Amino acid sequence: MKINKYGTLFIIPTPIGNIYDITYRSVQVLQKIDYIAAENYNKIKKILNKFNINKPIISFHQHNEIQNTKIIFHKIKKKKNIALVSDAGTPTINDPGFHLIRECHKKKIKIIPLPGACAAITALSASGIPSNKFCFEGFLPSKEIQRKKALNLLKYEKRTIIFYEAPHRIIHSLQNIIEEFGKKKKIVLARELTKSWESIIFDTVENILYKYKNNQSICKGEIVLILSGYKNKKKKIISKKIQYTISVLKLFLPKNKIAVIISKIYNIKKNYIYKYLIDKIK
């Protein structure tokens, strides 16, 4: 492990379900560092016990992040190496750590991120929904008014959209998605990923809501929702009325003249009409 002027902050992902999803490198780093800054004592302790690691743990969650950042800096300045871990998955992805990371950059403290588990990416990889462009929105607001506003702002988002959701709110959130996106919207609901009882469902939001309403026992565990992006469906604006007008005009005028006249009468772009004439009218 490279030693710098100060200690180093390691960002270490932890399993989102299956404990064996932790990487060999993560285990090796946890064995060598001096302290672990952890969001959840019991969860990190379970991992440490599994791999026979014994390290002092610093509590680090959303309620004490700013306060305990100072404690971590004090130890790093004494050349102590610290591992940042969250409840599950990759730290700072909808978890505490942003303030700490930003302050480390300001103080020129070396940060080493390790790759590993992330529920959003794990679900996306198995979603069957385009993954070349996507946005991550974290948890939807808990209150319905704010939740509907958040969804409304994403109504015309062309990228795939990823949310986290809590089990006790999932039915309400699905209902709100129907209100804003329509009942035929394609979504994926991934639940309890990497566990033996994990579930990944690809369907319309209407059908998934029906399944959940009629089987309350599956409304458990952490949930990832993935929505397909907005697609601008082009309407067939060349109506039968327009087609009839074109059929009359083509008896007397060339295509470019017809395009100008149709554009004026029906308020349609001239280039669109001309392309239609080239493609359809012989």
Rank of each mutant, 00 (worst) to 15 (best):
H63D: 14
I162Q: 00
K78H: 15
I238P: 08
N94S: 15
I33L: 07
L114P: 07
Y244V: 08
F98H: 10
G89E: 11
M1C: 00
K236F: 06
S26G: 13
A190M: 05
I187F: 04
E137C: 04
I12V: 15
K2V: 09
N40E: 09
G221K: 04
K240I: 13
N18G: 06
K107T: 11
G89C: 03
N271P: 01
R147C: 03
K143V: 06
Q67N: 12
K5D: 14
L48D: 03
I261F: 13
K275C: 00
L174A: 06
I246F: 12
Y41E: 08
I161G: 03
R191K: 15
H63C: 10
I273R: 05
V205N: 06
S131F: 05
K133D: 10
R169L: 07
V188H: 05
L30D: 11
A126T: 12
T92M: 13
K269T: 03
L124I: 02
P115V: 04
N215F: 12
L84R: 04
Q243K: 15
K270S: 05
A37S: 08
F98A: 10
E198W: 07
A150F: 13
F202P: 02
I109T: 00
C118P: 05
I187L: 12
F60Y: 15
Y274A: 09
I187G: 00
I242V: 09
K255M: 06
D21K: 01
L227E: 01
I242S: 07
N68F: 09
S247T: 01
T245Y: 09
I22S: 05
A190G: 13
F60E: 10
I66S: 06
P91G: 03
P56L: 10
T160R: 02
A259M: 06
V260Q: 15
D87F: 13
T23P: 01
Q216A: 05
V205S: 02
G89Y: 03
Y24F: 15
A37R: 06
Y164P: 01
T122K: 02
D21R: 01
K108E: 14
D87K: 10
E144T: 12
G221S: 03
S228L: 09
R159S: 12
K110W: 09
T69L: 09
Y210K: 14
Q216T: 04
S131E: 11
C104Y: 02
N40Y: 11
I246H: 11
I187H: 04
M1F: 14
S86M: 06
N232Y: 10
S173V: 00
Y164T: 06
L189D: 00
V248Y: 14
E103A: 09
T90V: 01
N132L: 00
I82T: 10
F98T: 11
Y272R: 06
Q62K: 15
D87Y: 11
K148T: 01
H99G: 09
A38F: 02
K2T: 08
I121C: 06
I58E: 08
C118R: 06
K46H: 11
S196M: 13
K75M: 07
N81E: 05
H172D: 13
Q31H: 11
Y24K: 14
L84D: 05
N267C: 07
A166N: 11
I268E: 01
V205T: 12
